[in-house]
Write a protein that binds this DNA or RNA. Sequence first.
DNA 1: ATGGCGCATGGAATGCGA
Length: 254
Amino acid sequence: MKIATWNVNSLKVRLPQVLDWLAAHRPDAICLQELKLEDRAFPESEIRAAGYHAVFAGQKTYNGVAILATTPPDDVAHGIPGFADEQKRLIAATVGGLRLVCGYFPNGQEPGSDKFAYKLAWLDALTHWLAAEALPKHPRLVLAGDFNIAPTPADAHPGWQEGILVSPPERAAFQTLLDLGLVDAFRLSGHSEPVYSWWDYRMGAFRRNFGLRIDHILVSRPLQSTCRACAVDKTPRKLERPSDHAPVVLELDV
DNA sequence: ATGGCGCATGGAATGCGA
């Protein structure tokens, strides 16, 4: 099985690139973030024509998440139960016997800000829901998405080693997710070169590889031994009008 | 690196992302 995640930064703008990428890579499922469109504007027919079923939770202008799969996603759930939130940042569904949780984690703006507090509260709610409900109910679980956290210094360019996305509280929250028994699939294989999944549009960041690895696929422990390969596909980032994020792809022997 | 980009809204200038 092949599972991907991609923050597309507007599905309206990126739809042709998404359809091209799906045709080229044929993942069994893909988690999308930052749709930036309302549900009534979701391009369901185009995606269906490409051979994918879609479940989604969108809103105007910001956020929005979706799961696309070659088989119909089952048992669909929206949001973090018990965490009142108008921002559409989480959708979960069962695909091919795996529980997929697709998240667009808050950015946090800057440590100490209100948005940073929201980010930590969101992470705390996610962690408690995974521990108390999702993981016990679904031992074979995949948590994929734009985490907006570079977990270790190796996941951030040497010039970005403090501040938002790399701060100690954010990294502690990421570690708490790992402590639930989740495994960063990318880290299961060795990487000698730095690998990033996001580069700022400005200042030639992509050209200079001034990036961060903030898009992740975490798998529950029962799935760990099935992980064959996990990689970032930088190709779409080189296109005209790219998303600032690249897709991350995990191949599992399931 | 934060200015400089890109997207959405709305129809210019601003908020936001990371």
